[in-house]
Nucleic acid binder design. Sequence first.
RNA 1: GCCGGGGUGGCGGAACUGGUAGACGCGACGGACUCAAAAUCCGUUUGCCGAAAGGCAGUGCGGGUUCGAUUCCCGCCCUCGGCACCA
Length: 862
Amino acid sequence: MSDSYHPGELEPEIRRYWEEHDAHQAESGEGERFYCLSMFPYPSGKLHMGHMRNYTISDVISRYHRMQGQRVLQPMGWDAFGLPAENAAMANGVPPAKWTRDNIEHMRSQLKQLGFAIDWERELATCDPEYYRWNQWFFLRLLKRGIAYKKTGSVNWDPVDQTVLANEQVIDGRGWRTGAPVEKREIPMYYLRITDYADELLESLDTLDGWPERVRTMQANWIGKSEGAEIEFACEGETIKVFTTRPDTLMGATFMAVAAEHPLARQAAEGNPALTDFIAECQKGGVSEADIAVQEKKGMDTGLKAVHPLTGDELPVWVANYVLMTYGEGAIMAVPGHDERDFEFALKYDLPIRQVISLPDDREYDDRNWHDDYAAKQGRLVNSGPYDGLEWSKGFEAIVADLEKKGLGRARTQFRLRDWGISRQRYWGCPIPIIHCPDCGDVPVPEADLPVILPEELVPDGSGNPLNRHPEFLETACPECGTAAKRETDTMDTFVDSSWYFLRYTGPDNDDAMVDKRADQWMPVDQYIGGIEHAILHLLYARFWTKLMRDEGLVHVDEPFRRLLTQGMVLAETYYREDEAGRRIWFNPSDVEVQRDGKGEILSAVLESDGRPVEPGGIEKMAKSKNNGVDPQELVDTYGADTVRLFSMFAAPPEQSLEWSEAGVEGAWRFLKRLHAGVKAHVAEGTLPGRKPEKLDGEARELRTRLHETIAKVGDDMGRRQTFNTAIAAIMEFCNELQRFEPGDEPGRELVQEAWESVVRLIAPVTPHIAEALWRDLGREGSVFQAGWPAVDESALTRAAVTVVVQVNGKVRGRVQVAPGSDKEAVQAAAMADDNVARHVQDKTIRKVILVPDKLLNIVVG
RNA sequence: GCCGGGGUGGCGGAACUGGUAGACGCGACGGACUCAAAAUCCGUUUGCCGAAAGGCAGUGCGGGUUCGAUUCCCGCCCUCGGCACCA
């Protein structure tokens, strides 16, 4: 092997060495356990930079902890069910199973090339019956406990393809393939009672101090606990129940509004063609909340009158599209004086507005500056009859008490969180183990008959679930009475698969149980790493499912993930063309040639293959659906895995989103070449036994101080802060100093040996191949990952003098060298000896002097 | 629309607890080496004024608190993520 850096030869050799020594199996070695988990990938075809970043972070943390002497579990698997496989099947006619498994093969080999310390013995794929049978088994237990239940839910319906669409497949209110306007449709589905756990899911967020604050905030807001009251309004022999967070504004209610799906709306529509048309109009469009929230507020009077429970006044009942059937009771009391949406609606339809809360300065309420006024919700009650003058929270209590006396209302807690609908009208997912018998109804598949195996040869064509046209799957006998019956063809939400895979990693070979006692050994996960886009749904469902399994006695932790690192997304430009039908065809950025102006704005973009223009579609997270994933393969082929790993960690802190650019990868490459050359040059003069160099002075003494400062900084950055970019910068900075140093004597060479051994170990988690090789070159036995993390020599950290910055009135005017720990007077005296400082102070009066010890002195003059 | 982030040189970013703004790297420019190129090495690189010493301005925009604000507070703008069937 030549003496220069050739990762193409070096890296495979090092990987063979690891494999021969089972270096990455979790059970080997000694020490306390550390479970390092990264979110498993959807096998979309190729690795992209988002994956690369995610798994490199995970590997750096794993290897860092391994070097701390811990026994690390870093598993890998495949989130293998889901929509993209069906889309690929439609496009190429390949069955989702084959497409998925081929992708897994390819991506596994890519991951192996990157040198991740993964325990491949534990690999799993959620599309394997050995995995998903436990989804089915557990679902049946939940059904028995009443946690799983059936009710209707609303879905996007494509009337042309006669199929249910995912929200992603609805574009501007139209089906992505047919272009037909989408409608809402009610169908029966299975739900899990996550709302039963709402309080616990909210409360235990406080125990997750290893989670980013922003994720905990988002989850708390998502669960959305509000204290309020339910109030009943009599209405033509029926009752309209509403939930409100502000019962104190009840006297300001001037109308009622119900959702289009509300039973009362349907009832009122009978014999009212205009209202029937309006309700049908509300059924247009998809079910996505974002779409509903931005649509124009519309409504229609039902003609019905509701009775105000305290005043007896008649209030008109409207149907309004901004009232959601899925929150509260699907009906509201509208208080346009103090609610922005009600206000907007009242203005549009000329409904009365009444102020019932005083403004802070007792101003008169005025529609025109309502936007300044409506927020004033914290005043006293006015225009509220017997409640006038009460502070709002007292009014809240008084009104609820009076409603309770009349039996027309009571205090209640409401959550924004809804039960989790898990039914999907799709083929490529885990079958829901239910049989529909004409006589016995919905019958669970007996445990002995599990798993219900999904036939793998089918090819969806976009017109509904092919299981419905597959008699071998569909036709069966009722387990209770034996008559001909049909299987449920809905499959489970893929979030079910990803809600417990981390538990299965602890005992993936167990054919007799979902999890076993090994789960107790490894759980909870010490470090979870994944994209911020999963901050709410996946993480909430995984927390919920863990609690469900706990309550079944299967695991013994309350929370699955002790520490969470949410990596920012890797973004890339998207490019598309529209076909005749207006469908967007997406092109990979690597196939597009782009010209930009001086500010980086795109001037033109053409497809390389045909030279014709494509439209830029904005910068978005790398994803299969927009075909903007950048494959790291080409870079790995050119520079090797270590360079790409180093570059992806150096580019930005992990939590930050990052627009992908290759500019700078050369820098990482150059650094590794210099590191390699530096060690080789030192070794060429002969290696030394690693021992603490004595009797250093001058430059050597300073270099050793810098070495141990760097060791302390890198350990802190990798372990506590998890800012790998700054850890790498610190290593680079030290290497620059080390390479300028020329050892004149034996202690100097000992220092250089110590320095290179430390540098190689500090960089090892990031660039493991080169570190392993250089560790050998330095004359050390065994793997660098068994060598342990370098220790900080506290005695090396002390300095004879420190630099203190001197400011005059907050502006830097000089720097002085003083002994560490010098007091204000001493530093000030030194500062006044500086010409420039003295000039700025001159004959002015010193009003104040502020000292930040060993760092800064600010002299305030006036 | 609602919830949560982000905005700092030509570019990626650093400044951790309110204390030197621009570490480290890319790019660019100048130089060394070379027949030449690549690679490598050395130097300069926020803007403006200045020969220099030094000075003034500067962290999306507008205000505020403070001896001192990229950091805290108020109001905006832009942008990214999520919004329950993308995963």
